[in-house]
Amino acid sequence: MKKGKVLLSSVVAILLGVLFISFGGLNTKADTINSYILGNKIQPAEIQYREGTFSHWFGYENGVGKPEGVVVHETADANASAENEVSYFNNNWPSLQTYVHAFVDDKESINIHSADYGVWGAGHTANYKFIQVELCEVHDYDAFARSLSNDAYYIATRLIQYNLPDIPGQTVVSHHQVSNTYRETNHSDPDGYFAKWGYDMNQFNDLISYYYNNLKDSGLIYGRDNSNVPQTTVLSVNNEKAIFVPLVAFDESNNKTDIQNRGLANNTPWQFDQQKDFDGHVYYRVSTNEWVMDSYVTNHS
């Protein structure tokens, strides 16, 4: 995130080809970054849920747990990873007077404030409307593609979590669009950073929509592929006592341990390919060695 203040209003690539191909309804030019992501089926990082230090808990204009969409930010810091940014803003937000819900780079997606509540990232009006996520800068093509995949997945997941439609310019907006709409900030991210890679918000909206539609339809970002995942099914999860659903791991001796730095967002769908009985509960495998207990499963198919 930009290290300057984002005040609470007055209160405070180049395209290399011309052939078009389709990935499940998303048309992109053959050699653009979206095609690279989808063609290689880049898998987004799982979202980590951590408790940040931001101590101002305020609901959106429509109430707690009722955001109207997501603001796309870019950090404008060429040398900071998501971990770096999380540490910096947890330590310095009182003097910076700014904070967001999550930071994303090519390796991690780290959520540090419950998206049920607003943050200080884009001016007073937007802060009371939108979830806000910062994309960290990277330095090579593959890393940029992976960071976009992580960011698009985070955004699509949040839209689904809060039962929001995917409408570019309305439920998914850039900080630049927010600045132009509400005139409370003068930032133009992520447009300049995207342009360095021959990329723009229209292409990013295409990627978000692709993930969103597939997640809504099948729970899988690349859709149901009967040729290689015929046994995979989908479950939905929710934890009424916290902002995320906990995960556990099992070792070779079938001993269970809690996973401390990861969790699943409430009211989201997940694919699982195995299940096991342990200590009176059924556990479902949603990643290589990450399992969710049946107590948090609201339905599966």
Rank of each mutant, 00 (worst) to 15 (best):
S9N: 15
T298H: 00
I155K: 05
Y60K: 02
N186H: 11
G25K: 07
V6H: 05
H281V: 12
S95P: 00
P246R: 00
D251G: 05
Y193R: 09
S227Q: 14
F20N: 13
G192Q: 08
N84Y: 08
T232D: 07
A76T: 06
Q203L: 15
V70A: 08
Q271F: 14
Y193E: 11
Q177D: 12
D251H: 08
K241Y: 14
F194V: 12
E137P: 00
W93D: 06
Y117T: 03
D273W: 14
Y153K: 03
D225K: 03
V237Q: 04
K2T: 10
T53N: 09
N34D: 11
A156G: 11
A30P: 06
N238M: 06
V248F: 07
T181Q: 14
F250V: 15
A265L: 09
E51Q: 14
Q271P: 12
F20G: 00
E184R: 05
A80E: 15
S149M: 14
I47Y: 04
I37Q: 09
M1R: 01
A82G: 04
S35C: 01
Q231I: 15
F20M: 09
Y162G: 05
F23P: 06
R285Y: 02
S147I: 10
W270K: 02
A156L: 08
N79L: 01
L38R: 02
S295A: 11
I221Y: 03
T98P: 04
W197F: 06
E74H: 10
L235C: 10
I167P: 02
I160V: 15
Q274S: 13
F194K: 03
I37H: 03
S35H: 03
Q132T: 09
N27V: 14
L16A: 14
K241V: 13
D225C: 04
V119S: 03
D191H: 11
W291H: 10
Q275E: 04
T257K: 06
L235H: 04
Q170L: 12
R183A: 09
Q275K: 15
F89C: 12
L159P: 06
P190T: 02
K41L: 09
T233F: 05
Y117S: 01
K2M: 08
D151M: 15
S188Y: 11
S109I: 06
E61M: 11
K256S: 06
D31V: 15
D106L: 07
K5F: 12
V6C: 06
G4S: 14
K2N: 12
N150D: 04
A45P: 01
I37C: 09
E137F: 09
A265N: 05
N228L: 15
V86M: 10
F250K: 01
P44D: 01
L15W: 08
Y128D: 13
A102V: 06
Q161N: 10
A195Q: 05
V12R: 00
R158W: 11
K3F: 12
H124C: 12
Y283D: 03
S9V: 03
A249V: 06
H101N: 02
H300G: 08
S147H: 05
A145F: 04
N214Y: 01
H187S: 14
S87V: 12
T75N: 07
